[in-house]
């Protein structure tokens, strides 16, 4: 009998242990390795970095660590500019996403109840189709002789082809387009629960619609605004595909820099340092996001 309960608690313990172990091995350990390699020297070899760690040589391990790669990152202002421009592009995109996403989410929340689940499904559907394909579709639209130019000159609005592809504007359009469901859905979730009588009361008391929007709707939608913004901002900072396909060679972004250090220059230690740099920028937003999400899931009835 005692043995059986031991077996039972053992098998019950496996439920958290198996996924825990998996994430430990395939998520946590790889991070420590990135950290380690970012502190090692590049080598012309396969793999192209000098291995640092030998169990028999703990002292040698610590003496070989150096911050050379990080010094390089601070000396070469390319990385500084790439960091600034990533954060700027991500911040502007998040703002644009709020501007575009809020009216859509608001409209969905005010639609008749029987139509709402269809509207939600329509927002999610594009998300299920390939990200790469959705970005690819914009190349044909934005390129100099592309469909946008054809359409606008067709109705006589422009006479010269407009240059959008390979500019930062194309990156904004791409990010807003690809991330829109991530902004609309959290916003909709909070707006849908909003109590309309509050707005009525404000109007009855003589508030203008514009003022009641800012003093009632926006504060009540704040959890959705924060969740949606973080959900867009964090991956946008490290975005690679969109700036690479739409941004042209002028658009500097840190995810792209990491990619080219790794694939073109084959400097793995420097690529790892860039990854650590990117992580340092994102640690705070990720921690806030985790708290917001965990609270949202745990307080749900």
């Amino acid at each position: 009998m005692k043995e059986r309960s031991f077996m039972k608690s053992l098998s019950a313990g496996l439920v958290p242990a198996v996924p825990y172990l998996w994430l430990g091995v395939f998520f946590l350990v790889p991070f420590l390795i990135v950290l380690k390699i970012s502190l090692s020297d590049p080598a012309v070899a396969q793999p192209p970095y000098r291995p640092l760690f030998e169990w028999s040589d703990i002292m040698g391990f610590f003496s070989a660590l150096d911050f050379e790669n990080f010094e390089l990152l601070t000396q070469d202002d390319l990385y500084f500019r790439a960091t600034l421009s990533s954060v700027r592009i991500a911040a502007i995109s998040t703002l644009l996403l709020l501007l575009v996403g809020f009216p859509i989410a608001y409209g969905m929340a005010r639609a008749p109840e029987r139509h709402r689940s269809l509207l939600v499904a329509l927002v999610i559907l594009p998300f299920w189709t390939s990200f790469l394909i959705r970005i690819y579709a914009w190349i044909a639209i934005l390129k100099p002789e592309g469909l946008l130019t054809q359409a606008l000159s067709g109705i006589g609005l422009i006479s010269e082809p407009i240059e959008i592809l390979n500019t930062e504007w194309a990156v904004y359009i791409g990010i807003v387009y690809a991330y829109l469901p991530f902004m609309v859905l959290p916003l909709y979730a909070t707006l849908e629960k909003m109590d309309d009588t509050l707005l009525e009361a404000a109007l009855d008391l003589g508030s203008t619609p514009w003022r009641s929007f800012w003093t009632i709707t926006v504060p009540l939608a704040m959890p959705g605004i924060i969740a949606g913004s973080l959900l867009c901002f964090i991956p946008a900072v490290g975005e690679f595909v969109i700036p690479d396909l739409l941004g042209g060679s002028e658009t500097l972004m840190i995810g792209r820099q990491l990619w080219s250090e790794f694939f073109s220059n084959r400097d793995w230690p420097l690529a790892s340092s860039v990854a650590i740099l990117l992580l340092i920028i994102l640690v705070l937003p990720i921690v806030i996001y985790r708290d917001v999400e965990a609270r949202r899931l745990e307080t749900r009835p």
Partner: peptide, 8 residues
């Protein structure tokens, strides 16, 4: 992993 940039 859900929000982490894929490059990392």
């Amino acid at each position: 992993p859900m929000v982490m940039p894929e490059v990392i």
